[in-house]
């Protein structure tokens, strides 16, 4: 009988101790920012794990399991030795790099002119949104007619006597690049405009007071302040251009010079039903693209990244 109170007391004490430690654990976690609110992020995290990270890992694993018994690296060896497949890397760069560079470089002067108060700024921004929201498929469809040998573009050029014969702009690399400029330039411009609007014009005025010419103001003041933003703009436009797919098939020559990585991956998967090799091409695409992005971001991290808003001090 006497053992009961002690036992219950011991139980109560251990309960108390457990409660204390639980409280203190919860408290300690809360101090590190882990409280009940964190549970709100769990659905989002699980979603990304289930539908992005898991498929990605599945794809990587699949890429090491060739359909034939060519071994662990079989698909990778096939990709790098088959010239038709290996050339897709070069083809993708030949399309994506010029398109991304033109988009970013062309958006700088327009953003310089359009910053501050310009009449009709909202109207211009609204028109620029149209090609972004129409999407690549529709732009490619329209360009097929517009740039074709009987299209208005060639007719006007012949009409003003600039060319004698229609220029071939469809079913080759040019059509694809033009379609990437039409959908990508507005995107790059609106991004650059938002970065350039964050630079205080007082900085250039200060440079001008110190005797800097207009070119010097741009080259020595505005450009260095804009460069980090330009790096991000380049990355995002490059990503868009690098994953070119519908316009490469519709406007380009998907068996020849616009046989890009994404076309090769889709063809391997849905025409040859070789999902392991298609996964291999996907993995290579992602790795190459992320490498370029990482290089640009590495370069960006060496740039000036302080305030560009100006002010005292």
């Amino acid at each position: 009988m006497p053992s009961l109170p002690t036992a219950s007391r011991a139980a109560a004490e251990s309960d108390h101790a457990r409660a204390l430690s639980r409280v203190s654990l919860r408290h300690r976690l809360a101090e590190r920012g882990l409280d009940r609110i964190i549970w709100l992020a769990v659905p989002g995290f699980l979603f990304v794990v289930a539908l992005f990270i898991y498929p990605a890992i599945f794809g990587v694993v699949l890429s090491f399991q060739p359909n034939d018994d060519s071994g662990f690296f079989g698909n990778y060896i096939e990709f790098f030795t088959d010239a038709y497949l290996f050339d897709t890397i070069g083809n993708t760069f030949r399309i994506a790099l010029p398109a991304a560079l033109i988009n970013v470089l062309a958006s700088i002067p327009l953003a310089l002119v359009m910053r501050g108060k310009v009449r009709g700024k909202r109207a211009i921004n609204t028109i620029l949104i149209i090609p972004i929201s129409l999407g690549t498929v529709l732009v490619a469809e329209g360009l097929l007619t517009y740039l074709g040998p009987q299209g208005w573009f060639n007719r006007i050029l012949m009409g003003i006597g600039l060319i004698q014969e229609p220029v071939r702009l469809t079913h080759n690399i040019w059509g694809v690049i033009i379609s990437l400029i039409i959908t990508g330039f507005p995107f790059a411009f609106l991004l650059t405009l938002s970065y350039i609007s964050g630079i205080n014009p007082k900085m250039e005025e200060a440079a001008s007071t110190l005797g800097a010419g207009r070119w010097q103001q741009f080259y020595r003041v505005t450009l260095p302040l804009l460069a980090p933003g330009l790096a991000i703009t380049f990355c995002l436009t490059f990503v868009l251009a690098f994953s070119v797919f519908p316009s490469a098939v519709m406007l380009g020559n998907p068996a020849g010079d616009s046989h890009v990585l994404s076309v090769a991956a889709a063809q391997t998967a849905f025409q040859k039903y070789d999902f392991p090799l298609a996964s291999t091409i996907s993995v290579i695409t992602a790795v190459v693209e992320l490498l370029v992005v990482a290089l640009v971001l590495l370069w960006r991290s060496r740039l000036y990244r302080g305030s560009s808003a100006g002010g005292k001090g």
Binding site: F58, A265, F275, S282, T285, V293
Partner: peptide
């Protein structure tokens, strides 16, 4: 950031 076709095929 990753092209949709790369994770789209395994997905």
């Amino acid at each position: 950031m990753v092209p949709p076709i790369t994770y789209g095929i395994p997905l």
